[in-house]
């Protein structure tokens, strides 16, 4: 098991390294580029050349990349120009991270807590009305664009019916102590219950919108996987042993059926980061997605680079955790 984990960590470092290279090259191939962004209207060829030289952009790409690596290893990712002008780009990421983590965790929790039991139930009642209903519900989940769903939720639950807050992370003017930057958690840690509750209410709508796609995917994979496993010979063996229905379901069906679901959950984290861009924008929820949208629109390259890079690192990290979880469930991986 230890060997497996060490090997996966080494692989992960390699993946992160390659990703950083791809992202670096991709950002430099975007039209416009940092020089135009900084100079704007005042652009002349001479000024361009001077600024490019100053920023090292006249160097060949691999030289630029090595310089970038060197600076990155010191934690220097450049300075934000638009999102938080003058602020260190990495700091922008660190400031926004807790908000998105909080939002994504709730969304993922909703998707799993709904997707797995519903998928299991649908499979057990394969072909019944419950099954058909759940499948249609999940199809709607993937078919409705996140942006549109977020907008609908906001319009009805916040604007029309006034049940939940329209935007933001916490009611402005609320005097809340910050600990982790995850407001719900902070409220619990400091026993400021009303602050925690207020932050939670702000989370609900964006989390529901963000959960829609991972929910649908987790539901469908669970359903398909349980259907497969129910047909497996070892489930029949378990029944032939006269084991109770509870043991057959839990130990023999669900545990095996969870293997593909665990992998899916890891992959959904990538989707969550993408979905966060849309959801956070609709709800003016100041997280990484919102920062990414702003940085992209305003051509804040330093911030854009940090956010995408860190997004990739988070994705790779989550999938490392998923691999470890998978190995814990599946001895065929663990003992190889």
């Amino acid at each position: 098991m230890l060997r497996f984990v060490v090997r996966r960590i080494l692989q992960m470092c390699l993946v992160a390294f390659v990703l950083s290279m791809l992202i670096f090259v991709w950002l430099r191939s975007l039209p416009g580029g940092p020089v135009s962004a900084i100079l704007g209207e005042r652009q002349t060829p001479a000024r361009r050349a001077a600024l490019e030289a100053a920023l090292g952009l006249d160097q060949p790409l691999h030289v630029q990349y090595l310089r970038f690596l060197e600076r990155a290893s010191q934690g220097k990712f450049g300075v934000s120009t638009k999102v938080l002008p003058g602020e260190d780009a990495l700091q922008v990421f660190l400031d926004r991270l807790p908000a998105t983590v909080e939002l994504s965790l709730l969304a993922l929790f909703l998707a799993i807590a709904l997707g797995i039991p519903l998928g299991y139930m649908a499979a057990r009642r394969h072909g019944s009305a419950v099954d058909t209903g759940a499948v249609i519900f999940s199809l709607v989940g993937v078919a409705v664009p996140v942006f549109f769903l977020a907008f609908l939720l906001k319009y009805f639950f916040a604007v029309e019916w006034n049940l939940l807050p329209v935007s933001g992370r916490q009611t402005t003017g609320l005097d809340a102590t910050r600990v982790t930057g995850m407001f719900v958690l902070d409220g619990i840690l400091t026993r400021e219950w009303d602050a925690s509750w207020d932050a939670f209410k702000h989370l609900i709508l964006p989390a529901v919108a963000l959960a829609s796609i991972p929910f649908a995917v987790i539901f469908r994979i669970t359903r398909a996987s349980v259907l497969d496993v129910l047909d497996e010979d070892y489930v029949r063996t378990a029944e032939a042993k006269g084991l109770t229905a509870r043991v057959v379901r839990g130990r023999h069906v669900l545990r095996n059926a969870m293997l593909p679901v665990v992998t899916t959950i890891g992959l959904q984290v990538g989707g969550l980061l993408a979905g966060a861009v849309l959801t956070e924008s609709v709800f003016s929820y100041r997280g990484i997605g919102d920062a990414l949208a702003t940085a992209f629109r305003e051509k804040d390259y330093a911030v854009l680079q940090v956010l995408i890079l860190m997004g990739a690192v988070i994705f790779v990290l989550v999938n490392l955790l998923v691999d470890i979880a998978y190995a814990l469930i599946d001895p065929r991986i663990r003992t190889r």
Partner: peptide
């Protein structure tokens, strides 16, 4: 009642030993 009999009074062995064993349980 059938569950009580299966595995205790009447047992069964299947054709394919690999697929008849649960891969993730010792």
């Amino acid at each position: 009642a059938m569950r009580d009999r299966r595995g205790s009074e009447i047992a069964m062995i299947f054709q394919d030993p690999l697929s008849s064993l649960n891969p993730v349980i010792s």
